[in-house]
């Protein structure tokens, strides 16, 4: 990725506009029309006919993405009350607030496919749908807030920028919006680590320790290696997914190496080196068995994250009830006035 994030998002947006101008000849066959839309790089919209698997696959993917944004507030939220300065606290609050917003944009996009918000929330709370395994790791020090911004948001961005070109209109538009907002997330994390690594030896050690812990889980965010990836081929054909897991992982590694150098921190991989022949860095793959364990529920914080989410949902019940009651009363009052 030679150019900056915002340039790439702008490019995706421009492509979307250009593709929208292409004229398609409309056949009678709904499948042929759907195929033609995908072929022309245009967007499928909510009321269009679409294959059942396309709809189901999208609901699964968008829901999992939305749940990740929502659960993703927890590890960083853990540090809001202990941020070292008021400035850092305001920034962290703004970031966590953005993640809540991202969750909402994505739930809204999923709802256009014919599933309700309540069903999605239930699926998360009952453990029927997943969220990204990265959020099952603990945030032990303040430096982790930096490492999450730099590495976790960084990896998320590498995953998300291609999704700005996804074939489903509401998802693509949500991703464009999200990516524009993400650009500050990565920078604030990078700034935290840069400050720490140029501070006292203890601060630098704290930054290094945090990068050591977050590096491999971040690499695992791109999912299993291509040889084991189950959903990929179909997703690529439908232009939901544009690049393979391994391609994106490589892109992320190549991006991080020079950034780590400027930070003055090392990435915890003795095999990490530039390969002239490939034009990429060679690196050690993350432990995929660990990834599978964490996805299956056996990570350091799975139980805690789910318990917290359930508690928040239950404790919010009275707010939902009060809001419904208030709306009912307001409606009756309005009805009486109009009489």
């Amino acid at each position: 990725m030679g150019e900056g994030l915002l340039d790439q998002v702008a490019e995706a947006e421009a492509e979307l506009l250009a593709a929208a101008d292409r004229r398609l000849s409309r056949g009678d066959d709904v499948q042929a029309w759907f195929d033609a839309v995908i072929e022309a790089d245009q967007k499928v919209e909510p009321r269009d006919w679409m294959p059942d698997d396309y709809r189901k696959g999208l609901i699964r993917q968008i829901a999992q993405h939305a749940h990740s944004e929502i659960i993703g507030m927890q590890p960083e939220g853990n540090w809001i009350s202990r941020a070292p300065t008021l400035k850092r606290k305001a920034i962290l609050l703004a970031k966590v607030q953005d993640e809540a917003g991202h969750g909402l944009y994505l739930y809204a996009a999923a709802e256009t496919l014919g599933i309700t918000r309540a069903e999605l929330v239930d699926a998360l709370i009952e453990g029927r749908q997943k969220y990204s395994s990265i959020f099952n790791y603990p945030t032990l020090t303040w430096a982790d807030v930096g490492a999450i911004g730099w590495l976790v948001d960084g990896a998320a961005i590498v995953n998300q920028v291609p999704l700005c070109r996804c074939s489903y209109g509401p998802y693509a538009r949500a991703m464009i919006r999200i990516c524009k907002e993400e650009s500050f997330h990565q920078r604030q994390g990078y700034e935290i680590l840069h400050t720490l690594s140029h501070g006292t030896p203890e601060q630098k050690a704290m930054a290094q320790d945090s990068v050591d812990r977050w590096w491999y889980p971040s690499l695992a965010m791109f999912g299993p290696p291509d040889t084991q990836s189950t959903h990929s081929a179909k997703s690529m054909g439908w232009k939901i997914k544009r690049h393979s897991n391994d391609e994106l992982r490589q892109r992320f590694v190549d991006m991080c190496v020079p950034q780590a150098e400027v930070l003055g921190l090392t990435l915890p991989d003795p095999e990490l080196r530039w390969n002239d022949e490939r034009g990429h860095h060679d690196f050690t793959e993350p432990d995929y068995a660990e990834l599978m364990r964490v996805v299956a529920g056996d990570g350091p914080c799975n139980a805690e994250r789910m318990a917290h989410r359930r508690r928040a949902h239950d404790e919010g019940a009275w707010v939902r009830e009060a809001a419904a009651e208030f709306a009912k009363k307001a409606a009756t009052r309005k009805g009486e006035e109009n009489r």
């Binding site: 990725m1 900056g4 994030l5 500050f184 990565q186 920078r187 604030q188 990078y190 700034e191 840069h194 991006m255 020079p258 950034q259 150098e261 400027v262 930070l263």
Partner: peptide
């Protein structure tokens, strides 16, 4: 708002 240190690419 954030200062990107000199030489840090792709940020």
């Amino acid at each position: 708002f954030y200062e990107v240190p000199e030489g840090a690419p792709h940020l």
